[in-house]
C-alpha cells in the first residue's frame, strides 16, 4: 500500500503512460507475465478486456451477497414467526398464528436490504475504501491518458521467490520497452 511515511520521500512505484486503451491492454499482458508483486492500471473509463489482461480473478462479492441475502431472508422470516406465533400470539383476521403468506413481503425486503448493504460494504472493504491517504492524482488519467503503475513493495515481500524483484531503473526500462510514451517515478507523500 502506498502512503505517506514521515517526511522521507520514498519511492512508491514507476508509472508508464499510454495513449490508447489497446496499447495499455497489450502492455498489461506483459506486465502481468513479468510477475511483479503489485501493479495496477489507471484509465478514464472501463476498458474491456483489461481484467483478463491484468490477470484479475473474479470478485468474491457475489458469494457475500448471496449469503447475506439468505441471512436477511431467514432472519426476517424468523423475527415475524417468533413475534406472532411464539412470543406474543395474536389472532389477526382469524388466520393461523404462523401465517407465512403475510410474512413474505418483509422477508423479501430484508433479503434485499441485507444483500444490498453487504454488497456495498464488501465493495468498499475489498477496494480499501474510503481511502484518505492517496491524495494527488494525475488529472490526465481522468481525461485521455492510460497508465500502468508498477509499485515498489512497501515491506519485504512475503514470498520473495514467487515475484520479480522491483528495481527502479529496470522497471522504468521495462515500461519504456512496452511502449510507454512517458515513464516517471511515483513518490509516496505526493502522488505523481
Amino acid at each position: 500500500m502506498i502512503g505517506p511515511q514521515g517526511n522521507k520521500k520514498s519511492l512508491g512505484g514507476i508509472i508508464g503512460y499510454f495513449d490508447t486503451p489497446d496499447e495499455l491492454v497489450t502492455a498489461m499482458k506483459d506486465v502481468r507475465d513479468a510477475r511483479y508483486e503489485r501493479f495496477d492500471a489507471f484509465t478514464p473509463f472501463p476498458v474491456h478486456g483489461l481484467d483478463a489482461a491484468q490477470g484479475l480473478r473474479r470478485s468474491p462479492i457475489p458469494y457475500i451477497t448471496f449469503i447475506a441475502g439468505l441471512t436477511g431472508g431467514s432472519l426476517g422470516f424468523l423475527l415475524q414467526y417468533w413475534t406472532s406465533a411464539v412470543d406474543w400470539p395474536l389472532i389477526v383476521a382469524g388466520k393461523p398464528f404462523n401465517s407465512w403468506p403475510a410474512f413474505i413481503p418483509v422477508t423479501f425486503e430484508l433479503t434485499i436490504l441485507f444483500a444490498g448493504l453487504a454488497t456495498a460494504g464488501a465493495m468498499l472493504a475489498f477496494n480499501g475504501l474510503p481511502n484518505h491517504r492517496r491524495k494527488a492524482f494525475d488529472p490526465g488519467l481522468t481525461r485521455d491518458k492510460f497508465a500502468i503503475v508498477i509499485e515498489s513493495p512497501e515491506v519485504e515481500s512475503k514470498a520473495p521467490g514467487r515475484f520479480k524483484r522491483f528495481e527502479e531503473s529496470e522497471v522504468a526500462d521495462f515500461l519504456r520497452k512496452l511502449g510507454a510514451k512517458d515513464v516517471a517515478p511515483v513518490y509516496h507523500e505526493a502522488w505523481f
Binding site: 383476521a93 382469524g94 388466520k95 403468506p101 403475510a102 413474505i104 413481503p105
Partner: peptide
Amino acid sequence: QFMLYWYAN
C-alpha cells in the same frame, strides 16, 4: 395475486 385474496379472505 395470491396474497391479496388470501389476506382479504
